[in-house]
Amino acid sequence: MAKLGILVQGELDRLRKYNLFTATTVVLLLWVGMTWLLEAGEVTAFVPLILLMDSTMMSSLLVGATLFYEKKEHAINSILVTPVPETEYIAAKIIVSVFNSLLTFLALAATAYFLKGVTFNFALVAAAVVVITAFHALLGIWFAFFSKNFSSLLVNLMLYIIFLMLPPVLADLGIIGEKIARFFIILPPDAAGTMLQAGFATVPLGRLIFGFVYLLALSAALYKYIVLPGFNQYAMRETGV
């Protein structure tokens, strides 16, 4: 893992140079501003929602965006012929995504605490943000493998969110019964929502533990069976094969 630090530093530099960091900072400032404007009671509902969006959709999009510009500029070729294992290259992308999500978490937590006097289980939410982001960063890499361009990636991610978030919403509206709704925790966005919610309200311990174990297991499987084997093929396609 000797090169990991260099790769992470490189990723962060490029996020800054390609203005992706600016874009995420602007969005973050918007969330901070909105948190500041809300009542203390509303903050506990708003913050987990924003963290959910940031750790899922935003993480997938950010990692997808970096892969697309590297693809466009053939930069993956150049990295693949350096003494950097693919595992470290992928790990660097996940670490940077987690770092960005934790920045959002810290900014929102600080705003909630210092400006609104709202406290929540900071450690639990931070842990949830790490696990949810890691899974969705891997998901973003996988989606980039088969998305033709950034717009196609965006559409695929929207479909993922809509289809997997729709059942819990229908359950909340009473359209789907409680018996079936209990199993929606196997949908990653629902598991993620449960994990984040646990920092702000009481959530059954079993569901919380299941959420963490489930997303960790899914991340490991996604990495081992899809992202790592698929990465070489993706990179080769990018080199014109």
Binding site: E73, T82, P83
Partner: peptide, 17 residues
């Protein structure tokens, strides 16, 4: 890869750097 150097036909640099 410590031993070899590769120059591809297409440009391969990060354009904003």
């Amino acid at each position: 890869y410590q031993d070899i150097g590769v120059s591809f036909e297409m440009p391969i640099s990060f354009s904003k750097l």
